[in-house]
Amino acid sequence: MTIRSFDLLQPRSLAEAITLLVQHGEDARAIGGGTTLIILMKQRALQYRYLVDLQSIPGLNQISKEPEGVRIGALATHRSVELSPVIREALPVVAEAFSRVGNVRVRQTASVGGNLAHADYRLDPPPALLILGAEISAMGPNGARKIPLKDFFRGMYETALEPGELLVDVKIPSMPAKSKAVYLRYSAMSANDWPCLGVAAMVTRENGRCKELRLALGGVAATPVLVNGLTFVKDQLLDEDVMQQILAVVDEQISPFSDLRGSEWYKRQMTQVFIRRAIAQLDSQLIEG
């Protein structure tokens, strides 16, 4: 299939890009790595007269260590996140989640900003970023603003970004002391397939007990889900009683729908299995560590 002809606009700055997007309104769309947008345009499911090429703006692909975390530019590729020494050291769960997307050819091209702005409910990175409390910087016709990632996903393929507004970077805070995080992806069919679901978990320990548990899931609702209401685990041992309570809380907050990768019933079952596995894995790591 072919793409209808379009003009590729190459702004040299964010401000210029925003101006172009505002000027052309619904006729224009920003393009990062293009791995999803181009497929949809080839299928002629989406058609734009103008594509605003964010790759032509210098500096948007930086990955930098900051005093309280790591900042990843919107145009950094999945592959660069996966291989970044900074991220592998400080936030290995982020490197792991990005390494699970698509295949190496896709990851070499697909951008971090594109991944988040696409807001697909089953992508691997969002759950990992959600448990770490990531925050998005956006820039639009009305200036710059910060959006916590947990408020960013509004629906299937819908985000908090306003027309003409661009995702500039994502800031990920450092992990708390004595904490470990893990991302488990489960593909129910071919190992190469989209995940049936993904579970990210972070456990912080203090004096041999749980200080904090964070859980986030992909694939089990129209958006990635950051689980609320887990504060009751503070100062608890993660024993079977507590586990049952955790699973009950999670089950209330997910709303999986049946698709090619599993029925609602199956996704609820697998959510429980993989939350157990994620927590068990972290628990043993923390005990060993």
Binding site: I39, M189, S190, A191, N192, D193, W194, L260
Partner: peptide
């Protein structure tokens, strides 16, 4: 091939 997968080396 986004949604219909055949067996690959990983399988």
């Amino acid at each position: 091939l986004l949604d219909y997968q055949i067996a690959s080396f990983k399988d």
